[in-house]
Design a protein around this nucleic acid. Structure first.
Length: 423
DNA sequence: TCTGGGGTCCTAGGACCC
DNA sequence: TCTGGGGTCCTAGGACCC
């Protein structure tokens, strides 16, 4: 049976979340900043019109921000994740199978759904329900492949006359749209590929669709070949309703200010290890390999640069933060060099095993620490309860390097004391 | 002065084995 | 003089995504 995919995408998601709880900002330009308040990572419609670009460092647009009275928010992921869940819950009520593709996007599988409505009416109904129940506006693209659904969604955003819902099931319509779309706006075609494709005269999505898939595979990759086929209506990417288990867990942060002190840097690494361990247990996995990396800033050419990473295979797969801390500490002391201004550090866990699936070495007697499971459970439970935090001494008690979040909005939906009250 | 974080997949090349 | 071929595994790096 031929597939039908719908891509639902929240408009200006982070900026929209912030605006929901601030009616006074309704027609005002709003931007949301990355960690450390470094870059612009989301913009409201009004901010886009002002020409504030995605990803620009905030200091480069400071004049515009002041001149046009743009409201800035530090990113508030607790709020965005909660709003995302509300949107996804509604989508799951509307469609039999849903793939949550990112915090603000989902693919719906409409294949074989018996619609009294046609797909366009169905899309409009979904959009109206999300709007009514969450206040978030979405765009919807409907097409026979994921790549075309992305394209339809692109059109839904770009052309207001569509009412933000585009039905791209028809081949002639697909070709008309593709002729208008820059090849760089195709899903899966990034900046590098755009340059290479354009150098070969492939400038629009339609040019790419009409290219020979065999040549594309030879000169580029199987990934791009798939894209070509998808643009021609041949579905090569399934809907994945179950989130695949993770293959790596990464915890890294840039610091609010440069670190020169060895013990402070060590604390930062310990903190990321603890966080990574928490995520690992959340995934119900054990990790056998841990990597630590540290680096100086990359933007100041006058600063001496240093960057290094080291990984180790642990004696047995573990999810015990104590094991991870111990290993990380050894790695850290081997790569640490004095005399640099460090800007970032991180910890990566890989080589995962299912809990209980690992066969221990017969000749070693029970290598794990005692009460590991119970201790980690208590640790996670306390830290998730919101009533306090427990942490390892190596993480430090009053870190100076915490990231900057100077424009953080309240936790409107996840903390009772921050609940907005309407009188 | 100030420039995010967290992922996936694919490929090429080297080491090693028979 | 002639100097194999096929396979696996691992890693680093490149590309993409949001």
């Amino acid at each position: 049976m031929n597939s039908i995919f719908a891509l639902v995408d929240c408009n200006n998601f982070y900026a929209s979340c912030e605006k929901l709880f601030r009616p006074d900002l309704k027609q005002k330009p709003v931007v949301v900043l990355s960690n450390n308040d470094g870059c612009v990572i989301a913009r409201s419609k009004e901010a886009k019109i002002l020409g504030i670009k995605m990803g620009v460092p905030i200091f480069q647009v400071r004049d515009d921000i002041i001149k046009h009275n743009v409201m800035c928010f530090s990113s508030n992921y607790a709020l965005y994740a909660d709003m995302s869940n509300r949107v996804m819950t509604i989508l799951e009520e509307e469609a039999p199978r849903v793939e949550v593709y990112s915090i603000d996007e989902a693919f719906l599988d409409l294949t074989g759904v018996d619609h009294a409505l046609d797909v366009l009416d169905f899309g409009r109904q979904v959009k109206a329900r999300v709007d009514k129940h969450t206040g978030i506006t979405v765009g919807i693209g409907i097409a026979p492949t994921k790549t075309l659904a992305k394209l339809a969604n692109h059109a839904a955003k770009k052309y207001p006359a569509t009412g933000s819902v585009v039905d791209l099931m028809d081949r002639a319509r697909q070709r008309r749209l593709m002729a208008l779309v820059d090849v760089g706006d195709v899903w899966g075609v990034g900046r590098r590929l755009t340059d290479k494709l354009k150098a070969r005269g492939i400038k629009t999505a339609l040019n790419l669709a009409d290219a020979d898939p065999k040549c594309i595979r030879r000169e580029f990759s199987v990934v791009l070949e798939r894209t070509v086929r998808e643009l021609n209506g041949v579905s090569c990417m399934e809907l994945e309703a179950l989130a695949p288990t993770k293959k790596q867990i990464l915890c890294s942060r840039s610091f609010g200010q440069r670190i020169t002190d060895k013990f402070e840097l060590r604390q930062a690494v310990a903190k990321y290890v603890a966080r990574a361990g928490e995520k690992l247990r959340g995934e119900k996995r054990l990790a056998r390999v841990i990597q630590v990396f540290i680096r100086t800033g990359v933007f100041n050419p006058n600063d001496p640069q240093y960057s290094n990473a080291l990984s180790v295979e642990l004696p047995y797969p573990t999810d015990d933060t104590r094991d991870l801390l111990e290993a990380a500490d050894v790695l850290f002391s081997r790569i640490y060099r004095a005399g640099y201004r460090y800007a970032k550090a991180g910890v990566m866990l890989t080589d995962f095993f299912e809990q209980g699936a690992y066969q221990h070495d017969f000749f070693k007697n029970s290598p794990e620490r005692s009460h590991s499971k119970a201790l980690m459970e208590v640790l996670d439970r306390i830290n998730h309860s919101g009533r306090g935090t427990v942490f390892f001494a190596s993480q430090g008690i009053t870190p100076q390097w915490l990231m900057k979040r100077e424009h953080l909005s309240p936790a409107y939906t996840t903390r009772w004391s921050d609940l907005p009250i309407v009188y």
